[in-house]
Write a protein that binds this DNA or RNA. Sequence first.
DNA 1: GCACTAGGTTCCGCAAAATGGAACAGACGG
DNA 2: CCGTCTGTTCCATTTTGCGGAACCTAGTGC
Lengths: 260, 260
Amino acid sequence: MSALTNAIDILRCFSTTRPDLSFADVQVLTGKPKSSTSRLLRSLRDCGLLEQDPHSRRYRPGLLTFELGRLHRAHDDLLAIAERELRDVCARTGHTGYIAVLDGYQQVVLRIVPGSNPLRVVNPPGQRTPAIVTSNGRAMLARLSDQDIRARVPLDYPKVPANSPQNFNELMARLNEIRRTGISDAADEAIEGVGSQGFALASGESGELIGIAVSYSVQATTEIERANVRRELNAMAAKLRRMTGDPLGQTIEQLAGLAS
Amino acid sequence: MSALTNAIDILRCFSTTRPDLSFADVQVLTGKPKSSTSRLLRSLRDCGLLEQDPHSRRYRPGLLTFELGRLHRAHDDLLAIAERELRDVCARTGHTGYIAVLDGYQQVVLRIVPGSNPLRVVNPPGQRTPAIVTSNGRAMLARLSDQDIRARVPLDYPKVPANSPQNFNELMARLNEIRRTGISDAADEAIEGVGSQGFALASGESGELIGIAVSYSVQATTEIERANVRRELNAMAAKLRRMTGDPLGQTIEQLAGLAS
DNA sequence: GCACTAGGTTCCGCAAAATGGAACAGACGG
DNA sequence: CCGTCTGTTCCATTTTGCGGAACCTAGTGC
């Protein structure tokens, strides 16, 4: 274990639910001896990755992380193009749009497009969620090889909401369904009463993968409205796949060509 | 030099003007041997602080920095309170608002409130600028002890625009003026044709220091309008200093009490 | 086909830094 | 005044990181 690894382990303790931590919190979360914790926290503070509140003495991510985070234009073209299209769809439908990426078996929200409907934004950018309980998370997983999926999902399958796939076989069944239809959906999973539909978009040249979803209240939408969302997403997916050279888009167009 | 220091040195090579770097760029900027550069870049990539574009092989800040950056001062009340007040002022005046913090002798933009006037935002969040050439940068410096200021400004005084203080004595003269009036201004310094006025706000309990400024086109504003901005800022400063327990606010109120 | 170069990785002996148990220190609470 | 809770400093031991040199791989010129 390198010094850097230990430092990163501390940084990874911070999250939206735990935006600041005390010395003791860090010690418990990392399981390191007091002396090591003390030394590492001081190093991280001195170099700007952490700040320490002078009053409460609690630690939080520092100025350097803010600066670097602003520079993270990861997947810039892909992300920018997708975001523009998503804005259009959200403006038309009034629902809230999400763009996320996969990290291990979790997804991380990168962008949000607030809708005009009064469903408050529940997942701010930076939020981590197991990919298996969201529509675009599953859409991204569906684009990976079965072997890769198996490697990402923890061996003891996590406890998930009732409507989510309860075990690896159920998960694979839903992923295969997504592979067939190209669109993924979810309802009453990560958040009660919230549904979403999404798809995954890959860049043809870089192979980057992002998930795009539209989210709405299950109660406040009709089946007709949800079908409309599905149409919008299919249109957006087709357009984006053409624009970005997504190999899946080419496959779909070939199939369409054969059928006609 | 610890391993962490070397890693941070690499991270600090990235900036708004250099959002991504090649292996060779990093090697030149850090001056480290190839082997060390190679090892460090791999470590940083593996732990998520950097990403590598699979096509161009260039490096850029990674997902982890994005996540941590979102958490930076997520909870900070000083910043949140100041931002809300600044929004009001910007809505009334139409100008663009900035909130920044001091880091050494540079300031880093934390928040921007775009105005309705068509002056494009020139300093995105994360932007670094020498504090001595901006209104709120100088306002923050003015709140420090002379000794602290001297320690922060480089020994060989940097080359600055014509309207900025040209040497340490001129700088101290302007800082003393700010200490007297409570408001700082700048015109045609960091950016040609752009002026700004600002002040510094300290939290009474934590001692944190932020700079708040309103920026406008020098050509497109009249002296009357700029006097109006000054009034708005003075009102905002007084209100915020009361709300946050800024010790300077108490001093000013004491003086006012003595005078009456 | 061959030499040359740019860009990057791997190897390895040595020096330097991280590690963590234990002793120490400050702040509260009774 | 003593215990406790929190965090820091010390120091012998171990592990890492370090960087020069060798090596590897593509591309380029001829």
